[in-house]
Design a protein around this nucleic acid. Structure first.
Lengths: 354, 354
DNA sequence: ATCATCTGCGGTAACGCTACCATTTTACAT
DNA sequence: ATGTAAAATGGTAGCGTTACCGCAGATGAT
């Protein structure tokens, strides 16, 4: 008794009151620490009565499991490397919020690492390995870097590709149906009476770009509108590229009355280009974006776009990764598809308005 | 011997090879585990010869300390709550990258939490406490929420305000000289020959807003330009508010030839407003932003602005926080000022051009 | 020469939790 | 009633690290 108290006091001085431990809860609930652990970890082999007692004690003491101790004892420890190379800031922001949240909730550690496309993939893998990274999270455009995927796979780490158009058999993937979203958006434009609809594609090295283009083409096809290849341009998802494409499109002798850009940044650039040429949006030109990132509302008029739930996708990807690190059965790559939704704002209008 | 091997094998099955431990390093270097620990933690009381031996062994084995074990044994464990309420996405993105990086490097855990201004501050503090948060990181606009600061202080957590105009005696603070930056930018506009310079202020509840306004006023004053209060408007850092203010400014009978917006989003809105009114930027209107977030380059023309090193500021704030959690002596609030820089791009031009 | 002091290092005992048995209780078939 | 399995719990032994104390040997003062 005295010894115990002594021990507690000796360490207690270190940092205020250390939180309550399983032992404290166990004492209060009059069960063994093991049972408390089981309750906390949702082990089904605990009687409901006992569980209730323990939960009451937990609530009373405000007990929170010590993550450090848990991962030490469990032998498990999950580090997830989040690799990013210049995606749009708005995209990254949402992605980071979602992934950190989920990683914390699941007791995983998130290492955020910048990766330049020119850098050596092998060096990167080595670096990740040296940081004891168990799994790698790949937002676009890295989710489409096949060489990188292979390299990480060789290094034996789990992976999750987010928003890729080409889920690899080597990795988990979380995507939306890019084709369907582009189809829906283009169809809306057609429904508004537009016949000449320009298209600004994304970076060719991102597989989602092709999917969006397919959706656009299919919508025109279904609507019985002849495809005019001069109306299709290719950017790289940056504002600047969107500006160039839009300018080219608007310089056409038979100018499009609507433009579908493959992401919001390029759509914002399209609006800027239109204004630069003295065109009113949406009266003289309708514009649609894609992603519904912050830049969709940081323009005037605000963009009609397809919402991609980036934070949710990041969360899901982290979940997949953590599961496959902790549970060998969850190791086989899974492909999760989440829903997109259309967000109708003010950048598009009916043809009659012009 | 056999027993040891057995033990290793039994757990080894879980996930590949667990990394090498201090014991492994100690064996190889022929010292005690304690000495290895001392080397890793830069304890000065280690002979150079020994240190070299150990370091060689560490390199050879690719040893990386187990963070979980470390924080468990050390009794130390640092959780930092990062509270954010709708700042610009571009800002948050940079901020998150910087803070996660530093937190990982220092072995702290970062909890990202969204906080609505309408929500109860006491409930928030309780929540943080229940998550065992030791310190709180406050990016704007939360860094200016005095009630929140007091509330967190009462709860006994350390705090760091980032980019506040009013460092509290209760918290660490990392800032730039907002006044000087605004002064520099306005002075540049004056140097370009502008006499009527409009101003779009930030949210009044953020103290940095007033500082930027002061800088603007002082610049005009020093240049001997009479201040015209009609040229000063107040937004709230959002694109939409910037649009409103710019529109009002441009509707003035004596229209300004330049506008200084207190952040990039509002500057982007100003450009949009100008285009909407058929004004060319920068030929007919010069525009300056503030912060140099991603939105500065997501407009055409790209913004001349004052660069605030957001990621670095976040890193510094995390460092301050972790230090004060681990070391009682570092607990007294410190105020760190980092340098800003002017980024000259294409949104401003000499008066003669018009 | 002798004792205090400091440096450099090793041993031991936690830190809070969970894996892995062992044990008790309960349920159900024989 | 008895055995057998399943369910519910407890005991023990670490997980990898660091805090604390202790012990040699070197250094300096007396």
């Amino acid at each position: 008794m005295t010894e115990q108290d002594n021990g507690r006091a000796k360490r207690g001085q270190r940092r205020g009151a250390r939180g309550p431990t399983v032992a404290d809860v166990a004492r209060l609930a009059q069960v063994s620490p093991m049972t408390v652990s089981r309750v906390v970890n949702n082990d089904p082999k605990v009687h409901d009565t006992t569980r209730a007692k323990v939960e009451k004690a937990i609530a009373e003491l405000g007990y929170v499991p010590n993550l450090a101790a848990r991962s030490l004892a469990g032998g498990r420890q999950c580090r997830i490397g989040l690799l990013h190379s210049n995606p749009s800031a708005a995209y990254l922001s949402e992605f980071l919020v979602g992934s950190t949240e989920q990683a914390n909730a699941m007791g995983a550690q998130l290492l955020v690492e910048h990766f330049e496309e020119e850098a050596s993939r092998d060096a990167l893998a080595a670096k990740l390995l040296s940081h004891r990274v168990d799994a790698v999270l790949l937002p676009p455009p890295l989710s489409d870097d096949v060489l990188l995927l292979e390299c990480i796979n060789r290094a034996g780490m789990a992976m999750a590709q987010v928003a890729t158009g080409a889920p690899s058999p080597l990795a988990h993937a979380v995507t939306i149906d890019d084709e369907a979203a582009a189809y829906a958006l283009t169809t809306r434009l057609v429904g508004l009476g537009h016949k000449r609809i320009g298209f600004i594609g994304g970076a060719p090295n991102q597989t989602a770009s092709a999917l969006r283009r397919n959706g656009y083409r299919r919508a025109l096809d279904v609507a019985g509108i002849d495809a005019d290849r001069r109306l299709e341009t290719t950017g790289d998802f940056t504002f600047r590229s969107g500006m160039d494409c839009a300018l080219a499109l608007l310089a056409l002798e038979e100018r499009p009355s609507a433009i579908f850009a493959s992401n919001d940044d390029m759509a914002a650039a399209t609006i800027a280009a239109a204004h630069r040429m003295g065109l009113d949006v949406p009266r003289q030109l309708s514009v649609c974006g894609f992603d519904d990132t912050a830049s969709a509302t940081n323009v005037w008029p605000e963009l009609t776009t397809a919402r991609q739930p980036v934070a949710d996708m990041a969360r899901e990807a982290v979940r997949l990764l953590v599961d496959s690190v902790f549970d060998a059965k969850a190791r086989t790559p899974r492909h999760v598809r989440v829903d997109f939704s259309l967000v109708l704002r003010e950048s598009d209008a009916s043809m009659r308005a012009s």
